[in-house]
Design a protein around this nucleic acid. Structure first.
Lengths: 187, 187
DNA sequence: TTCTTTTTTTGACTTTTGTCAAACAATCCA
DNA sequence: TGGATTGTTTGACAAAAGTCAAAAAAAGAA
């Protein structure tokens, strides 16, 4: 199990702790278009993506669908604020492809914290990684032109470019779809 | 002491804990232009701003000074990743005005965690608030025009508008200074 | 205060990005 | 398979935003 291996590598868990961790996460097959999370609901699950692709999005004042994040294999699938604070989420998360994840619900996570205290640290580290990603994204939106943002995105997420509808990438980068189409043509 | 009152309001600390908390933070006068934090250094302090104003910034590839955040009275002055993980910071933090803050260093903070466990929660909550702010900022950069960003900024931070150089606001909003000057003229 | 330096504004112009609508292409199911 | 639907590209144009340079204004320092 990929997740356990990752954990093993960075956090020194005993065999028992590893066992408990492995059992806490249940495999789940998520068909494309399934909502992992819905706006207004409290997040009850965290997932670890084995295979597939997800995106988070919300609707702006003009009912435009705005993508805020893409979730790739090997990363944590979470509506962070909602899960951590158990408050209603502002965004949706939906599977873009048939996906396979490992899930744990909030209650089980609290249980896991008790059994394997290291999970508090793991959670903290994941949260910090997400914060960092967001900081980088914010700086890119602040300082780069549309073309530069797209080029950087292609570099950093070649897989996503291949597999995701252009309009989602456009909204994620804050670029009009027609403009992005033209930018792409030039490259 | 403002900080203690805030804490008192939201977290139920015993008198002893309040005492310990109050003693852990030392008042400090920070003259304008003083660096609270420097790029490349590990953050050793967290501050709580009583009076004054700070900004964080970094230099981009073209040596442009890019403002990433303004810190107002009543908020926490921190280079979050650097302080939390004790790794070198990527940004500078500098006082824009003569300021008064309450500071605590890393070691004392660890000590405070032991004496007053509630501080772990306080820290977590502050971190989450910062994450939220960043999320909002990111969405604004992604979805709003330069004019809309400026208008929203004026609404949300009327104090900052009055007191900070326009070029810092321009870089914070990701707008050219000449463009922002024109936007402002129209309003 | 006066001189210097820094910051902001402005003009003339260019480039980037967005808008609208239509054509085209791809995808989805029934 | 074949409409129907959804997504992408394109053209013609408009609006937004950036660039460069100079002037004006403001802030700092001696």
């Amino acid at each position: 199990m990929n997740l356990v291996e990752k954990i093993k590598k960075f956090y020194k868990l005993t065999e028992k702790e590893l066992e408990a961790s492995a059992h806490a996460f249940k495999p789940a097959a998520i068909p494309a278009k399934t909502y992992f999370m819905e706006e207004g609901k409290v997040a009850n699950h965290v997932g670890f993506i084995e295979r597939g692709l997800f995106r988070s999005f919300f609707y702006d004042d003009n009912a435009n669908d705005i993508t805020t994040h893409f979730f790739q294999p090997g990363t944590v699938l979470i509506s962070m604020k909602s899960f951590n604070d158990q408050v209603p989420a502002r965004e949706n998360i939906v599977a873009l492809e048939d996906s396979e994840i490992y899930v744990i619900n909030h209650e089980e996570m609290m249980e896991l914290y008790k059994r394997v205290p290291a999970w508090r640290q793991i959670t903290k580290d994941v949260d910090e990684m997400k914060y960092n990603d967001l900081m980088n994204r914010s700086i890119q939106l602040q300082t780069l032109t549309a073309k530069e943002r797209y080029e950087l995105f292609c570099q950093n997420y070649p897989e996503i470019i291949k597999r995701v509808a252009l309009r989602h990438i456009a909204s994620y980068l804050g670029i009009d779809i027609a403009t992005l189409s033209r930018i792409r043509k030039k490259l």
